[in-house]
């Protein structure tokens, strides 16, 4: 089962031009706010029409950008927006039974299906409750039950963890992971949190300004990030410039000695662990050494991420012990060293 989306639409300042093929897998759509992720989900759900291009699910053409358009109610796409949108006038059971009822199931059958689905997700005790009495995490799970009970062909989730507390998010993440594993079709998950994308998705599609700039596994993205956003996402330093004769001249100023036999415009990535910090000028193998100032020190489990300012702003990942030994704090003067062989170049 495969979903193909090519093309897009223009709405005011947002222009979407998407190229996405999702099989029986989970793809995370990540990207900055306003990149068109939610709009892409609405296109697939049939709540918006393509201006041009096509949207197909297997052999069914859902939208050809012209006359052919399958209305949302006939697509069997589960759409889970950020707001769970449980019908406030119906109790939890009736909310979950709404889909089967709409698709022609009798009252008894719909109710049985809904009860079974609530039990499966361990939500049986909420059946008679009104949505307003549920917590954010509970409402989110009920919305998932309501979507899954319709036996959808495609599952779309928009920021499933937004606005719920941390412990509920942990619980929900587990729940979703098992739902995705059981689900026999394309799952598309919109998120801005890298951790969710890495934990839940098989592949990550990065969307910027309405376009899919890169798609691949987390490893593939990390190996050759296409944009600064992707590099930030995977935690890498990302630079652009032009190589001539083993010397990389950066677009934003500064030069670096590089080891790869590449010429012309490139993107360069440096892993934060490959950036070392020193109190005095190191005299050793590193070919790139310069002095600068620390702008921030962010502790993270096992290590700390230290940002340094220009001429080449970078992030260095060092141990907590090193932070203490060097007594680093914002404003500390340091020498930065990067080995030429640690700079990965990708021609563009």
């Amino acid at each position: 089962m495969t979903l193909h989306l090519e093309g897009g639409l223009a709405r005011g300042t947002l222009a979407i031009d998407m190229d996405l093929a999702v099989g029986r897998e989970t793809v995370a759509l990540v990207g900055p706010n306003g990149a068109g992720k939610s709009t892409t989900l609405k296109l697939i759900a049939g709540l918006l029409r393509l201006d041009r291009g096509s949207l197909r699910c297997d052999d069914d053409v859902w939208d050809d950008g012209a006359g052919r358009f399958t209305v949302s109610e006939d697509r069997r796409v589960a759409w889970l927006p950020q707001d769970p949108l449980l019908f406030p006038h119906l109790d939890v059971l009736s909310n979950v039974a709404f889909g089967p009822r709409s698709r022609g199931a009798s009252r008894t059958d719909a109710s049985q299906l809904a009860t079974a689905m609530l039990e499966r997700l361990d939500l049986g005790r909420f059946a008679a409750r009104k949505p307003e009495t549920l917590s954010g995490g509970e409402a989110r799970k009920v919305a998932i039950a309501r979507a899954l009970v319709t036996r959808p062909r495609v599952l779309l989730l928009d920021e499933p963890f937004a606005g719920i507390d941390v412990s509920a998010a942990v619980d929900l993440r587990k729940e979703l992971a098992s739902c995705f594993a059981d689900f026999d079709g394309p799952v598309i998950l919109v998120t801005h949190a890298a951790v969710d994308a890495f934990m839940l998705a098989d592949r990550i599609a990065v969307v910027e300004c309405g376009r899919r700039v890169q798609i691949g596994t987390a490893e593939a993205l990390g190996a050759a990030p296409a944009t600064r956003y992707v590099a930030d996402l995977v935690g890498l330093n990302f630079l652009r410039g032009r190589v001539h004769d083993g010397l990389l001249t950066l677009d934003d100023g500064g030069t670096l000695v590089v080891a790869h036999p590449v010429e012309g415009p490139v993107t360069a990535t440096i892993h934060p662990r490959a950036v070392s910090l020193h109190l005095s000028r190191p005299d050793g193998s590193p070919r790139n050494v310069w002095s600068t100032t620390v702008t921030s020190v962010e502790p993270s489990p096992g290590s700390a991420r230290v940002r340094v300012e220009g001429p080449i702003p970078l992030v260095a990942e060092i141990t907590h012990a090193a932070v203490r030994t060097l007594s680093l704090r914002p404003g500390s003067a340091v020498f930065v060293a990067v080995k030429a062989t640690e700079i990965t170049l990708t021609p563009v």
Partner: peptide
């Protein structure tokens, strides 16, 4: 109108 979008995606036609 998002409620209607939700109802639509769950399979409800205009009358429903």
């Amino acid at each position: 109108a998002r409620w209607l979008d939700m109802a639509r995606s769950l399979g409800a036609g205009p009358i429903r």
